[in-house]
């Protein structure tokens, strides 16, 4: 875990030292202020941007070891504070999207696999490919147009009071891609298990389809499905960036985008660190789940 965090931090430092622009230049780039070299110099000094990259990286790591993520260039607030404020909305969004994806995608893939080649199967799989291919921002705009502007059922954007009404549209939009992928993976997993020898054994025992599925098929297919759920759950944080921006959702994603364009490096570092942590935690949970489901994986 620590090597991963070090590597990611280093990568961000290197990238931001290579790409053009800095926090100070982003402040004067809006065309309102004059490009005063004295002001730039002073600000660079204040934020430590005049020091070489390796020095800045060193002090960042030392602070990180003390759980200090530094201050935002932009707001001068502690980064930890800003992140914690933004983390919950994003997690809420990601969890809601994943729950929708699992509740719909897995059963859909299951049903499709039980009758391969049927009308339901083909329709589901065509819909799944479409779901994977459609750009999320376009889907989001469409959802806004239909459900918020035309029908007026739901608020079109914003966090509101943090209730469920504001959550529905962004969560559903975010769930489309993982839902489609889960439907496809579930279908493939079920078909894979279905052709296993032990399913033939189970059939030779004289059990009906319901028992075949609940006693033997489900658990085995679950091992394969959980892998996809874990991977998707992690990458949802990345996908959330687009959705949060689109729906003005006050989460980590929109904070990250704003901070990148302002070159607010401490906040970018912190936000990416949060996403990496999220990935690592989910991977650990998945590993534990594997061990619970599959006795062949030792608990050691």
């Amino acid at each position: 875990m620590i090597p991963t965090i070090l590597a990611v931090s280093l990568l961000i430092f290197v990238i931001f030292s290579v790409i053009p622009g800095s926090f100070t230049s982003s402040l004067i780039a809006d065309g309102k202020g004059r490009n005063d070299p004295k002001v730039v110099e002073q600000m660079n000094k204040e934020f430590g941007l005049d020091k070489p990259v390796y020095q800045r990286f060193g002090s960042y790591i030392i602070n990180l070891a003390q759980l200090d993520l530094g201050q935002s260039f932009r707001t001068r607030q502690p980064v930890t504070h800003m992140l914690l404020e933004r983390a919950w909305p994003t997690m809420k969004l990601a969890i809601a999207a994943m729950v929708i994806a699992i509740l719909i995608g897995v059963p859909l893939g299951f049903v499709a696999a039980l009758k391969p080649g049927s009308l339901l199967d083909t329709t589901t799989m065509i819909a799944a490919v479409s779901g994977l291919s459609l750009p999320q921002f376009w889907l989001g705009l469409l959802a806004m147009y239909v459900f918020a502007l035309t029908l007026g059922w739901l608020p079109s954007f914003g966090y509101g009071d943090g209730g469920i009404r504001n959550l529905i549209l962004p969560a559903v939009t975010l769930s489309v891609a993982p839902l489609a992928l889960l439907a496809r993976t579930t279908r493939a997993a079920v078909l894979d298990v279905m052709s296993a020898d032990f399913i033939r054994t189970a059939r030779s025992k004289g059990m009906n389809a319901y028992r075949l599925v609940t006693w033997h098929l489900m658990r085995n297919a679950l091992v394969l499905i959980i892998t996809t759920v874990g991977l998707q759950f992690g990458s949802l944080m990345g996908q959330a960036v687009v959705i949060e921006k689109l729906f003005s959702w006050p989460g980590l994603g929109s904070l990250l985008v704003d901070s990148v364009s302002m070159r607010d490096i401490p906040v970018v570092q912190g936000a990416i660190l949060m996403i990496v942590l999220w990935f690592l935690i989910i991977n650990t949970v998945v590993d534990v789940l594997y061990a619970v489901i599959d006795p062949r994986i030792s608990h050691g």
């Binding site: 054994t201 189970a202 006693w215 091992v223």
Partner: peptide, 8 residues
């Protein structure tokens, strides 16, 4: 080897 369910 394969005729028995590995997870039961």
């Amino acid at each position: 080897m394969t005729a028995l369910n590995p997870l039961a």
